[in-house]
């Protein structure tokens, strides 16, 4: 994973709440066995409408998505993160994220920046007054800057650290190999095993 420190790019306003992962990427695109090339699948249903925000310039080149509360709820599909990333997004801003989506994002270098609902409204207004305005997202300082606005965002310390360092979770966990093996040696006989099949 690449190190994430600061991103500057066009911010796109998505004035919707409860954007579930079925909307971010419909199930028909989950049949692929690859991890890239999902840019056309992003918000596929909504993009059939020419007026949808991500069909409008300048937002085709947006890097920050600013959405209403409960973004990324529902299905665990990590394809939602891949599709956002493939479209060009590096940051999603929302007052509240689905738990699984937020976890998936952190593992793929997509920053989920949580801000209060009133701040999202201020950002939306700033963008709509000046479409195409760029936002700078500073993970070191946990700060968003857009126009005159300077807003703090929340992200948990651990995810922030991993993003800043660009660390691979599996390699980190495998540093605990001895502890895992020791745990396994204590595992009770009644606990399930799938093999041999019975």
């Amino acid at each position: 994973m690449e190190k994430f420190t600061t991103v500057t790019g066009i911010a796109a306003p998505l004035r919707r709440s409860n954007v579930d992962t079925d909307q971010i990427i419909p199930a028909q695109f989950l049949k692929r066995v690859t991890k890239t090339g999902f840019e056309d699948a992003l918000f596929y249903g909504w993009r059939q409408d020419p007026d949808f925000i991500l069909n409008q310039q300048p937002y085709l080149g947006a890097r920050v998505l600013v959405a209403g509360p409960d973004f990324g709820t529902g299905s665990s599909r990590e394809h939602a993160v891949w599709a956002l990333r493939d479209f060009g997004f590096s940051v999603v801003v929302s007052p509240r994220f689905g738990d699984i989506f937020r976890g998936n994002s952190g593992k793929q270098g997509l920053l989920t920046a949580q801000v209060p609902e009133e701040d999202v409204e201020r950002i939306w207004r700033a963008i709509e007054q000046q479409p195409g305005v760029e936002m700078t997202v500073d993970l070191v300082e946990r700060q968003l800057s857009i126009g005159e606005l300077r807003l703090a965002f929340e992200i948990d310390d651990y995810t922030r650290w991993r993003l800043l360092e660009g660390l691979d979770d599996i390699a980190l966990t495998l540093r605990n190999e001895e502890a895992i093996t020791a745990f396994e040696s204590r595992r009770a006989a009644w606990r399930p095993t799938t093999l041999p099949a019975r």
Binding site: K35, S76, E78, I100, G103, N104, I170, T173, I180
Partner: peptide
């Protein structure tokens, strides 16, 4: 799969994970 929560009916701690976590569990069982 997010509906892994189903198995909690038995008093198990059961939850859905993303594909990166699937790989993580395959590699480390944690």
């Amino acid at each position: 799969d997010s509906h892994t929560s189903t198995h909690g009916a038995f008093g198990a701690m059961a939850f859905g994970i993303g594909t990166s976590e699937v790989e993580h569990v395959m590699a480390t069982q944690t």
